[in-house]
Write a protein that binds this DNA or RNA. Structure first.
Lengths: 345, 345
DNA sequence: CTGAAAGCGCTTACAG
DNA sequence: CTGAAAGCGCTTACAG
């Protein structure tokens, strides 16, 4: 059922030249006279010829395609990452092929997916890469990891990676809340086995420490990054004998849930309770009140990871083993000064 | 820089058989003795062999891969569609390759992306396909369109399509609100050139008609499907001399915006104003109050579209030119009975 | 049950 | 500036 397609040979005979010449023209190789070039291009247009990707890949030894492997497509920030990757890939004349791990999960064999299909792999991986290591290794293909969920020891994965500075972002969030006068600050954490969760928690704790605030176990609750779990976590916090005046949520989505819970309790954000998120997903600026948050430069992360991969493919070598991109405080409307204590009673 | 990979020939010599035999084994073809099979499999494992996708595609005439072309990755409902597509594709032993149109947009030439790479194309297309028609046609590849944004005339595209029953869904939404006693019902519409917007609007209008309610132009506002525009649209409605008691939003995301605007105005959902959405994206059940909405069976749509495509590829032919899947009312917490007029004053 | 040969549609050195 | 030949790594008829 494969289409009886037009081949190079068809174009060649139509244009009255050799296949080689057609190949040179469509690949923009030098050493072709302008008249020949035009004749060939006309034949290409008339016949509606497109190169057969597999044939080209097999003969040429490269596919001009970058594979992107993601564990799931519903992560809100995924599209930003992809925009960055797409931009750099396109500038370099490469296509981007996205695939979910689900598809090859059964065998944990990325090779099935990648061998002969792509020149390199961008792993967008919020979880552990360990199960895929062996196949990644025998595949012998350049690999770059973006936003690794687990900080494997360098020995273990030694794939170059790109990640945001979670710790510094968390410190900035805390600094912001502290500077607004908050001292009773809660943290809605993420799954504790994931590096981003841990680093952000560390930023929270050390932020308190530097402000000489004793940590209060009651104020530290956990979410699974979802809106629903953020909602429930905030409810717990609101039920406390002495509720927080500010909540630092491990990600924007759980912050949305927290805001709902606060509104639902008849309180207002930020008047009664301030909320700060993390990620700066597109929605953060669209909700009401617009969310103060820490920006992960997702677009740049996607672009930088792709650039790294391109370097590896071209044999230039990775510029750095582990690129950490800075995060940034984005102040919007969901945070404000703490109420004087007497006013709150 | 292509990896110096293990080939069929390597496996063959390691196992002491011909390449053909290895090929038969890895493709699970019949007519191989069990001992030979095991010997080959052992060699495959030892060498970490994976088939070269391009070579296989070129020789075999098919790629065992389905291409999915999407206009954007940030559409919230996209991942559900993909889950359905992925399930059916995997059951049939095919891989799924996702690509955004951005990548090939420049030339509007899907061929560059697909020829020799995939056996068929699933177009997830909320916009017009017309710009891609020519390349789709000369490509001569099976194509199925999911959730078309524009209802091209059948002559124009005659690609089999799968779509939700927008009109009937809108009628159900109206029926629900009417049965709760609402008569002053607003509609936050979508971009008027898109079929889903139009069909849902038609359902709104005809719903009013059947209830003998005169349409009020003031109650019909427009959004671009975004949360922000839903927020603004609802603000306009709330500013009316006589605001609505219920809002039917063209999609869930704009409904979220509307709910924010209502809360922000110091009113409650559904106590003061009921809100119903459309789509039933995962988030709809996570927000507070949980959103009453119309479910588009996205998972089934993805699965059905993929099934259709599989049929086309296998030469079975499309079961139907235009599959319309039913939509369903999902009652949650954002809608309730209208207040008696005296109570509202 | 096993294998030698041809060929899929290109690109890559290499000649002229 | 142009082209004939070889070969990329497989699968597909076809023999034995």
């Amino acid at each position: 059922m494969t289409s009886s397609s037009i081949t190079l040979a068809d174009v060649a005979s139509q244009a009255g030249v050799s296949k080689m010449t057609v190949s040179k023209v469509i690949n923009k190789k030098p050493g072709i006279s302008e008249t020949t070039r035009q004749r060939v291009m006309q034949a290409v247009d008339e016949l509606g010829y497109t190169v057969h990707a597999s044939a080209r890949a097999l003969a040429g030894g490269r596919t001009n395609t970058l594979g992107v492997v993601v564990s799931s497509l519903d992560s809100q920030y995924f599209s930003e990452l992809m925009r960055g990757a797409d931009m750099t890939a396109r500038d370099a004349g490469l296509e981007l092929l996205i695939s979910t791990t689900r598809a090859s999960h059964e065998h944990r064999n990325i090779g099935r997916l990648a061998h002969g299909l792509v020149d390199g792999l961008l792993m967008v991986f919020p979880a552990s890469l360990v199960p895929y290591e062996r196949s990644l290794r025998t595949l012998n293909l350049p690999v770059v990891v973006i936003a690794p969920g687990m900080q494997e020891s360098t020995e273990q994965h030694h794939f170059p990676s790109v990640d945001a500075d979670h710790y510094s972002g968390a410190r900035q969030a805390m600094q912001h809340l502290l500077s607004l006068g908050h001292r009773r600050i809660a943290f809605i954490g993420g799954p504790p086995h994931l590096t981003p969760s841990r680093e952000r928690l560390r930023g929270y704790r050390e932020g308190l420490l530097t402000a000489s605030i004793a940590p209060d176990a009651e104020l530290q609750v956990t979410s699974d990054f979802s809106q629903r779990s953020g909602f429930q976590a905030a409810r717990e916090l609101l039920a406390l004998a002495e509720p927080p005046t500010a909540i630092f949520a491990v990600n924007d989505v759980s912050a949305f849930g927290a805001i709902e819970a606060i509104k639902d309790a008849g309180l207002r954000v930020p008047d009664d309770i301030s909320v700060i998120g993390f990620d700066n997903i597109p929605q953060a600026s669209q909700v009401f009140p617009a969310l103060t948050t820490i920006e992960q430069p997702l677009l740049e992360m996607g672009a930088a990871g792709t650039r790294q991969l391109l370097n590896l493919i071209q044999g230039v070598g990775a510029v750095t083993d582990r690129l950490i991109v800075p995060t940034e405080l984005i102040v919007r409307a969901s945070t404000g000064p703490v109420w004087p204590v007497d006013r709150r009673m």
